[in-house]
Structure formats: structure tokens, C-alpha cells
Design a protein around this nucleic acid. Sequence first.
DNA 1: GCATGTCAAGTTGTG
DNA 2: CACAACTTGACATGC
Length: 341
Amino acid sequence: MICRKLPYWSGVGRLVDEQVRCGVRLGLCCLFKKEEISFKTITARTLLNLAAADRPYRLSAVCAANADSLLQAVKAVQRLGIGAFRIMSPLFPRMTHPDVGYRLADLPDGQRIEELLDEVRKWSLSHDIRLSFHPDQFVVLSSPHAAVVANSIRELEYQGWLAEMVGADVINIHGGGVYGDKQGALERFRRVFPTLSPRVRSRLAIENDDNSYTVRDLLPLAERLEIPLVYDVHHHRCLPDGLSVVEATRLAGATWQATGREQYCHISSPRAGWQGGNPKPHADYIDPDDVPACWQGMTMTVDIEAKAKELAVLRLMRDLAEAEMTASGAADPEPVWAGTR
DNA sequence: GCATGTCAAGTTGTG
DNA sequence: CACAACTTGACATGC
């Protein structure tokens, strides 16, 4: 657990000798701005307009391209010194769609796609790139509507399968709707949880949102289910709950410690600033002042939710490194980023 | 080519 | 009541 020589804000904690990573690692969400890596999609309508026999070929091309892009993505992330990557939910588009859903085994290139996923897993493991998923807003385990919950479970199982394939350790979701009765909604969430497969349960995390569920609301559920709580400090600032940032960081951190894993947090900056009206929309970049001072030196993953994507992660890494150098004066003779080029 | 509406899905708050 | 906001583009269509 020696990290004297490593910068606090190292991207990956590029450990050469030590086995134990430490410091904050910054994560990229889903997409790239400048790097020429993109993901394809296909709509249900397009598939339904094709003859059923043609669909697997079309899907296979999309999925193979995306699996390849994912491998390129984790390699790019590693090259840039970024330490984590959130995988976009529709990596295999429409896979759980009721009408046009499919399995990899149905696709002509299914085996090759599986091999690519295995390459992603091996690369990420050997280069310490942490992978995660963040199912979108349609996944609502607290819904009173059975059909919504059933769709949510199906989507979660898809992501759980994929997470296992690529070695991702986090599937992070929100509490969902309130329906006029927050405790009742949380209770529904609690009851659905045991019906999930082990590979989903072991990866599921719950995140405070900017609308309904705060850290304070979710902590009892996280503790009861023994799942970790992803702390989104931007959401917390948009929807305060009486806890300080320091307290929320510590309480959320304890849920990660309880599962023996590295803490996971999110950050973003308001597009129009904190004085400019609605603070919820995300800015292109992160204002370093929005980064909690108490996070410095902590061993955690912080996903950067910013529209400039990898450019925002790189800029924040630079800004924080500079701030640290300034703060420490000439104490550290080595340039902070020497190890990450 | 380029502009524009549409993508499977939920829920809440605002104007 | 329509629409934006949430991890966000990218596809499909029509000019």
C-alpha cells in the first residue's frame, strides 16, 4: 500500500512495482469526442422492415463492429491514462427487445464477438481499467407496474451477462420513481432484488439522483441489501439531504468497504454554472472547484460526466495535477504526469 | 450531400 | 398539457 511516488490524481495509478492501486482514478463515460471510436446502433423499426432471415446478418455486423469498438475504447482509455470506462447500455442494440431481441449465438459472427469481449476483459484486467454499466432510465425496480419491473429485470440480466463477459464489476442504477410514497417504492425495490441472478446482484449498485432519492434515502436500502452506493456529488448538490459532501462520501464509502471494493463516485459541473438557473444539465468540462477537496488522496473511481468526454477527463487530470503541484510547492521534484505518458 | 425527425422502454418537474 | 432532463448520438428519410 505504498503510493508515495504516485500522484494523488493519477489516471490509472499506473503501478509498475506495487500491486495495490491507490489514488483517485478518473473514468470516461461511454463515448469519445476526439478519438475516432464510435458505436453503431439499429432501431427495432429497421429490423422489423427486414425479412426475418436477414436480421441476424444485419445485427451481426452491428454487434461485431461495436465489440471491436469496445476493444479499441479500452485500449484508448489505457493509452490516455484514464482508469475506468463506462460501457454504453446498447452495445448490442435491441438485444432484449420483445419483438426483435436475440442472442449472440443467433448471429453469424457470434463466436468472434464473444472472443472480442474476452479480449476486452483480458486487456482491462491486465491494465487495471475498471469497467462499469449504467442502465438507463427505463430500468426501474421500484415501479408498481409489473411490466416495467419485468422489462427492467430483463435488461439488468442482459447487462449482467455482458458485465461478466467483459469483467465489469459495477451495474449502477437509480432508485427510480417515488409514486407518492418513497418508503413504499424502496420496499418494492427491496423485494425485487432477491429475484435477480447472482451475477446481477453481485454487481448492482445504487446511486443518488437529482430528483427523488438522496444518499440519506438510499443508505438504509444499500445496507440492507449489502450493495454499494454510488455517490454522485453533482446530484447531491442539486438535491441536498442535510449530509455534507464529506459525510456523504464517507457513508457511501463504507458501503463499498463492506463489499471489499473500491469506492465509485460521479461528478459533473452545471452547464450554466451554479448561479445560472437550472444546475442539472451537464457542462462540457469539469470545473476543478467542483471536485470535493476531501476526495484528494482517496482510493476511488470517479466517473466524469461531461459532454467533452475524454477531453474533459484529460483536462481535469491536468488541472488537478497542477493544483496539487502548486499546493505542494517544489516538494515533489518529479513532474506529476511523468509516469503517465 | 445535408437537414431533420425519430429512436423500446419511465418518471418527475417546469413552463 | 407538452417538453426537457436524465450517460448521448446515430440512423432513416426526404429534399
